[in-house]
Nucleic acid binder design. Structure first.
Lengths: 219, 219
DNA sequence: ATAATGGATATTGGATACAATTTATTTTAA
DNA sequence: TTAAAATAAATTGTATCCAATATCCATTAT
């Protein structure tokens, strides 16, 4: 974070990033059917921009795995299969635990306090609060690792899937809190291997439950 | 308008991809100095296309880590520090070994034969041949893993660095061949953990030597 | 002399219109 | 009914234009 407050007047983010966020939310929210075709001119008119930022946004979404693009055919909303969810969570567990292990050596006492603080604030949170806090919690665990490419991969893979598991997995918040507790405890004790192992278990368990939920929904 | 006579580029793949390859090769070959600014209009004129495919190509190169882009500043050729090389090789070892382990369960007898065949053909190869064969060899080890996102990450990270280590590391071909031998042997014996471990060692050793070379060059 | 200020200039980000290419659809013909 | 041809639709790429912004350079103030 910058030491100064944001004094900017207008929105300085580039258009294709804003477009990307809009489309990503819409897809994850289910505004577009899986398999639905995304016509550039229609999107441009809907959002109120020209085709260029749309094209750039779609390319980003393709990398994140939310749409597929073929030459002269365009973009379609990707159908997430069970295998996709399994792959995403397996990669998340490997990459996030790797980033956590690397981050551990850079954590200051303040970092560890902040992590504990976030964890505590998640205990009594509402579902909506929890989803936001959880994103930031996981971000705190990994973002000190000094590996920009690794962090880029983690962000890419994480954005490819909605982070609203508390809404669909029964008891997810309670289970997560218990698992987070073990991770936080290990971090406070400077137990690198333990923290990483508990994080792997946490992500793996969540992935398994999400797959189970999707299986049941499909059946 | 445009003269289709002096086509610097073929006609089958999409333009921004061809542009991307051209620029990637040019950067890795050293045609652009590290830190050099890449002006879109100049590149467009040089290559003989309009600005749009240039812009799209630059964005891909940014993801691969070859250039950095800032709003209204444009693209500059990235300076690869020691830390970058270390990160790239560490990620490669983790991701490629993961992909190899997953691939092992899908290998057919033909796959294993083909891998052995490639390895054998690398024994007496010239340096140029070796570089090409080595790319395909590593590709064979990982590409059966049925994890498209994992393969995407491996490709992205690999393209961010020139794959011409045989040219700069003394005795690289001989050392690699010995390490490949162990990998191939483990694959033929269906020893998943062994193959993955030897691959990690191989990539790690190459990364170390490359860092050492860069250190010496800088000094 | 040096730092800050204030334009010119260059470059990027984005919009728009249009041509070219490919795919999808419909119509026509055997 | 089926196959070929014509048509429509969508994407890719080009050319141009304009606005926002960064960079550079000369001028001014301290």
């Amino acid at each position: 974070m910058s030491k100064h407050k944001n004094l900017q007047i207008g929105n300085r983010e580039m258009l294709h990033n804003q477009v990307c966020s809009i489309l990503r939310s819409a897809i994850l929210r289910g505004d577009f059917e899986p398999g639905e075709r995304l016509v550039q001119t229609e999107l441009a008119e809907m959002i109120g921009v020209s085709r260029m930022p749309i094209r750039e946004a779609l390319r980003t979404l393709e990398i994140e795995g939310l749409v597929t693009m073929e030459p002269h055919k365009g973009a379609v909303v990707r159908v997430l299969e069970k295998e996709d969810v399994e792959e995403i969570y397996e990669l998340r567990s490997v990459l996030e635990s790797m980033a956590l292990k690397k981050s551990m050596q850079y954590f200051t006492e303040e970092d560890r306090k902040l992590i504990k603080q976030y964890h505590d604030s998640m205990i009594g949170a509402t579902t909506e609060e929890y989803i936001e806090l959880n994103k930031e919690f996981h971000n705190l665990l990994t973002s000190s690792c000094e590996s920009p490419r690794l962090l880029g991969f983690i962000n890419t893979i994480s954005r490819g899937l909605a982070q609203d598991t508390p809404l669909v997995i029964p008891g997810q918040m309670e289970k997560s809190n218990k698992e987070h507790e073990k991770i936080v405890q290990a971090i406070l004790e400077n137990d690198t291997e333990g923290a990483a192992e508990y994080l792997v278990e946490h992500i793996h368990r969540t992935g398994m439950e999400l797959v189970k939920y999707l299986d049941e929904k499909q059946a």
